[in-house]
Each structure stands twice: as structure tokens, then as C-alpha cells.
Design a protein around this nucleic acid. Sequence first.
DNA 1: AGGTTGTTTGTTAGCGCTAACAATTGAGGT
DNA 2: ACCTCAATTGTTAGCGCTAACAAACAACCT
Lengths: 337, 337
Amino acid sequence: MAYSSERRLPRLEDVAERAGVSHQTVSRVINNHPNVSKATRERVEAAVAELGYRRNTAARSLVTRRSHTIGVLASELSQYGPANTLLGVEQAARDAGYFVSIAALREVSADSIADAARHFMDQGVDGIVALVPHTGTLQALEVLNLDVPVVVVGSSGEGRFSGAMVDQKLGARLAVAHLIEQGHKRIGHISGPQDWIDAAARAEGWREALTEAGLADDLFVEGDWSAGSGYGIGQKLAVERSATAVFVGNDQMALGVLRAFGEAGVRVPQDVSVVGFDDQPEAGYFMPPLTTVRQDFEELGRRCMDMMLALLEDGAGAGTTVVNPRMVVRASTAPPA
Amino acid sequence: MAYSSERRLPRLEDVAERAGVSHQTVSRVINNHPNVSKATRERVEAAVAELGYRRNTAARSLVTRRSHTIGVLASELSQYGPANTLLGVEQAARDAGYFVSIAALREVSADSIADAARHFMDQGVDGIVALVPHTGTLQALEVLNLDVPVVVVGSSGEGRFSGAMVDQKLGARLAVAHLIEQGHKRIGHISGPQDWIDAAARAEGWREALTEAGLADDLFVEGDWSAGSGYGIGQKLAVERSATAVFVGNDQMALGVLRAFGEAGVRVPQDVSVVGFDDQPEAGYFMPPLTTVRQDFEELGRRCMDMMLALLEDGAGAGTTVVNPRMVVRASTAPPA
DNA sequence: AGGTTGTTTGTTAGCGCTAACAATTGAGGT
DNA sequence: ACCTCAATTGTTAGCGCTAACAAACAACCT
């Protein structure tokens, strides 16, 4: 076979011989131990460079019981949010010298979560980042009694695990506040599936903001995040015309709503204002350009990894980190007629 | 610290003792070696289950020199296509008992590719799947002289490496054929950046199809894949009105074009037909719903992993696998006025 | 019975590394 | 000169596993 390495890779021993020291000294240099004289360190480093030595991770893991690998357990990786969160995790991990392994859930259930977690334990990961934005994820993980640290994205960190989240409730309140400021009184909400943590939090934020302003919170419909569901719901709303503004749970559903309104002759924003959530890159090119709530997913991912590193290396306890969303006002909102 | 496992995990030796056999016999059972009697096998399996034994990957890797890990080197992971390809790779990998490690490129360059590849070599991956759809990726990888198999997505597999690709040229020809069938004579193309393999292939397919039909291929503009660039180019096209149909390099740019046309009062499809590429989930909810070319990214990912497994386990040589795209006709195309 | 298979099990060594301890060196104080 | 202490280097063992070989055992033939 073409790839079975004919030439053996150099080991510590080889480097040691070349540098005229013991293999342990080489190990010290590699691992930046303090008590190595400058002269030796340089000699060893030269030998490392000459031989092109790279340390063997398997051997190291075997003895240290650390794989320097983080498992990211994710569903919906093809979506903008999770994909970017993963990117943030990967960036922070690689910068810190960690490897990132992934397991994608084909369907979200306690079983599939358990499968993926077992997969990671077999691999010997040092920690797990759960990027599964469903209620129930926490419980599904807790019963497994994993003995590695876990950071749950979207969790507010009540349980045994650490959490990292974007403040969804705040995001929803910002959206509603923006609409109220413009003078809207009848503000509806098209939410994501309520078994998603974020969907529930956004709905709650919407409800709270309305209640506090003394407005009714009866215009509520649940969608499934897809543009298709937004379209279907939008068609109904176009007929009813009960709200002057709609806060939609994500940009994709908002796209569907926009199309339904467009087809029905409901003008946005003259007749109805629409606010989305996420600010995916296309949102500025919808018709009309979408006012929405931006979440910094990459930052979220980086924070996850920071928490993980704290758990792993500083022995910190579980905690939570919160990223704030912000409004991006475009052309899909305006004062009511 | 909370997670340093107090209780030692069971090893082969522990299972062996419990089952009353040697550790090697347990190893044989674990690895499905043929010559183990049914009685022993059952006894061992019982012991494994009772102790909750899981094999130590590091130890195994150390001696076999196989990590059972595949590295996916990717850029643009937040895009629909690459993200779904990754999903396909992950699925096929996990089913085959492999782990998937990722390295995302923050910026595409020979250096960053080399960095990521080194990262994977440090980890000891068994193979690398390169999901970096730029021309130049192949060369950047080739000079590294990696001694693991590499599968390059988007490559037609000329070099030392295996390739897996969607037939982009075919996709472009399908799109153009569809427009020609409808009677269009002036068919423009908004392409992706020409240093992307796929963008170049789609442009070439467009050109070939036009030439074969005896039509002019002079209406060509290069975008950057983003909705914004599509918007900018769309604005110009709306003024010029040189083409009756535009084949756009991806759905996102098509979204921008649609908006530019909408704002300029150019009706789609009555005045100009628009075809996209990718068929991302939102394409059916654009205004109007977009006719586009569908690529099965997950299938592509699965095929990558299949090739990798063939290279790894059957000692097969480098090869190529091609996935065919297909037309999805919606409302953005119609015969010219 | 004795030899010749093949099947099943056990024994040994070592993959490449780090932790723990032991040994050596040099500086500084008496 | 001697002792003490710290800094630097070396030696040894073992992480948990599989490959290679060796041993034991049964079955089947002359």
C-alpha cells in the first residue's frame, strides 16, 4: 500500500541521540519544562528541526490520560448558527493546542445523544461541547454520568454542566422594543418549535416585553424554523391582518413570511412590519431588507471553548457565559399607517 | 478537580480476570478474531458488559499506528454546501467506526492549508479530506508530501490524490439547456470567483453549452458568491438589459440579483429569467421561487468517506467519484417575451 | 499407537511517551 | 576545604494495547 510509511518517523530517542542528551531531556524541551539550560534547549531544538520530529499523540495520551481533543456534539450543523458556533469553537481550540472532533446528530433524541457521547468517550475526548439547542439535551446528557466536563450551548447553566448562551430573551425584547418605539400596538410572534431552548426563550422575551408595555400577547403561532413554515403562516396572517407588526423567530421563516405577504399584496413595511432573528448574511438582501437581531455565533463558540479550557486546565467549576445580541435595523420595519 | 476520574476505568486485564481467560483472548473477542470458541466469546462478552469495558483508543493507536480518525480540512464551513458535505463525511465515518476531526481555515492560502495539515499530522489522523474548493489547494497539499491518503473534494483527481466532485460542468449545461429550451438566445452568467474550482467549472459549462448551440458567450460577470455582489451586478444588468436570461453561480448571488431586479422594476421571469445553483433550502421561497441546480452535498461527503475507506482498508489506488446534479425548475424561468 | 493437521489459548515484548525518582553538577556560605 | 541547596540531567517503570510466537489440545489420518 502506498501510504504505509516505509521510513519510520523519528521518536524522542532519535532526537535525544542526535542532540547528545537523554530522551527525557528532549521531552522536557518539547513540553516547555522550566529546568533545562539554554544551551541544551537550543541543541535539542536544532535536532528536532533537523529530524522533523513530531510528537506521537497516542503515546502521550496513553500516559497522561489526556487526549487534548474536544468533542463537539451537534445537531443542525448545516444551519447558519450552529455552523458558525462550531467555527468559533474550532478556532479557540486550535489556538489552545486542542483538537476538535465532531459528531452530528441525524435526529435529536436521548438515544442519539447517548450514542454520540459514547462515541466521544470511546475516542477519549477530554471534554464535550453540546451544540444541541433542544430542551431535554441537558437531561439526556446528565443521566449518562460522563466523567468529562461538558459545556452546553444555549443552557443557562443550572445543572451540573457549564453553559454558554446568547441572551435570547434580551434579543426578543430588543426586537419588540424597536417595534413599540415605532408605535406598534398589535405585535405578533411566529416562533420556532417550542422544544427548542432558543425558541422558547424568544417567545418568552416577546411575551414579557408586551406585557410590560401593557400590550396583548395573543398573536402567537408556532413554526418549524423553515422558510416553508413561515410562508404557510404568512399566508394566514395576510388574510387575517390582525397584527401591524410580526416578530419572527428566525430569518428563514421571515423570508417565507415576506414572500407570502408579497404574493398577497401586503406591503412590508407600509402595511406590516417584520423583524427576524439571527442576521444571517442574506438577510440584508431580502425584499425588503430585513430588520433583525444579530447573534455573534462565532463569539459564542469561542466562549464555549474558553469555558472548557478553564474547566480543564484551571480546574474551575461550572459556570455560565452570556453573549449579548443586538438590533440591526433595515427596511422591513416602519411606524404603522 | 471534579473530573479526574477517581475510579480507574477497566482494562483488558480486568475483563480477562473476570472471564477467567488471558487478556489476549479478550483482545481477540473485542476485535472479532475468528479463532475464539463460542463459549469463551460469550463469557468474555458478559464480562465486558458487566464491567462496562471500553477499549482505550490511545493504547490501541500506539501499537497499531492507526488512529481511526479522519481529518476534514475545510474552509467556508458556514456555507450550506461545505457544511452538508461535512455532514455526509461524518455520517459515513461514524458508521464505519471512524472519528472525524476538523480544522477550519480562517483564510485560504498555502500556509494556512499547511498549518491545518500539520495539525492533523500531529494528531495522527489516518487520512485527510480536503474540503477547500479553491484551485491551488491541490498543489498546496501536494508539496507537503503527507504520508496519509488524501481525498480532495471538487478535484477531478488528476494528481496523486483521490477526488470526489459534483459534476459542475454538467450542472451548468443543464441550466443553460433549460434556458435554451425555453427559447432564450442571450444568456448571461454571473460566476463565482474564478479561483474557485466550482466557479470555473460552471463558467466553462455555461460557455460550452452556449457555443454548441451557436449562441454568444460574451455576457459574463464575476461575483464573489455573496448576495451583496449579486445585488450590485444585478443593478447593472437591470440598466443594460442585454440578456433575457441569467445563469447565476449560486443561490445567494441569485437572491441579490432578484432583489436588484425587483427594485429596478425588471420582472422575473417575464422580463428576465434567472437560474441559480445549489438549491439551498430557502431557494424555493425567494421572490419568485428560484429555478436552480441541485447538488447532493451529503452524498458527496459520503462518497468521500467511501473513497477514503477504500484507500485505507482495501489498499485501493487513487480514483475519482462523480455525483450528478439535477435541475429544479421553479418560477424564476419562463420563455422570453 | 504415532504422526500430522488445525484450532484455541497463553506468554512475551514493545509501541513512544511522561512521571517519579535518582544522580550529577555548580554556586554560595561557613 | 566542606557542606547545603538548587538547578540540571539521567534512569527506570509503566500507561493499555496488539503482534508474534509458543503451547496446549483435539481430530483425523495412516
